[in-house]
Design a binder for these strands. Structure first.
Lengths: 139, 139
DNA sequence: GATAAGGGTTCCAGTGACTGGAAGGTCAAG
DNA sequence: CTTGACCTTCCAGTCACTGGAACCCTTATC
């Protein structure tokens, strides 16, 4: 299998597949002409990676997950630990994004959005107490 | 005002403030010794930027917002347009992250997380139909 | 045999928004 | 005169690709 076929099969851009080889996630064979040849195992690995990435796992987590997948003596606890910490990460981002959306949608709601210059959005951004200085106090 | 003071006042790391100067968001004066001197206006600008960034606006949006803020003949509609498109962006990310979290928390829930190797998380990642190939079909 | 289309290859640079670190200049206090 | 806390610039690294240039290989067609 050449790279284009694998790209179509896994949904990963060819560039990404080459990148994954660069960082040692897959090691396809080479033909005499230098072309990569992917085995079914390679394709399976890449599909695994694509799925893990689509769940937002960082590449280094994907590497660990792949290693665990290939380790028949693994403990599912190790896998779960990675997943849990990633879930935590996601929950943190969700909290942050939700706060942003709430603030922002309120600002958008309150802005006339016409030809006049008065703008509650800009007023909010400029208002003294709202800077990140206070945000950082929280931590 | 020197950079440390401004950093404390705005909550922005000194490195970030220098970076903002690099990309032309602020233009502090210089003392004879080469030190940056920030006026109240500079500090106000930086606080504005900090607040806008904390709402997730990309730096280039911040630049536009700052320009609109300084333009007394602005139309609030221009501000609102930027905010709306950013809100859209955020909503997209929220949707994506929520989907990830739902999938992931279900997987975590179903995994024993003990010393045995059986792991529904890995099974899911490895399962054929779930690759990003199908995800990309949706688009 | 020339050529064009559609593969493949490598390598370099850029993305966003910083962040870390090295190497060195400045300043006030003791 | 030294210490320590400032300040400066510049270079490299982050993350996970992505774009593009420059070039090679294969197959089909003229």
């Amino acid at each position: 299998m050449n790279i284009k076929t694998v790209s179509t099969a896994t949904g990963l851009p060819a560039k990404t597949i080459r990148y994954y080889e660069d960082i040692g996630l897959v090691r396809p064979q080479r033909e005499a002409n230098g072309y990569r040849v992917f085995s079914d195992t390679d394709v399976h690995k890449l599909a695994f990676l694509a799925r893990a990435r689509s769940l937002g796992f960082p590449v280094e987590n994907c590497r660990s997950l792949l290693a665990l997948y290939n380790d028949k003596d693994r403990a599912s606890g190790d896998v779960k630990a990675i997943a849990l910490s990633h879930l935590d990460e996601i929950d943190g981002k969700l909290t942050e994004l939700t706060a942003m959306r709430d603030t922002l949608s309120e600002l958008v709601r309150s802005c006339a959005g016409d030809n006049r210059p008065d703008c509650p959005i800009l007023s909010d951004l400029a208002k003294a107490g709202a800077s990140a200085a206070e945000e950082s106090q929280k931590v």
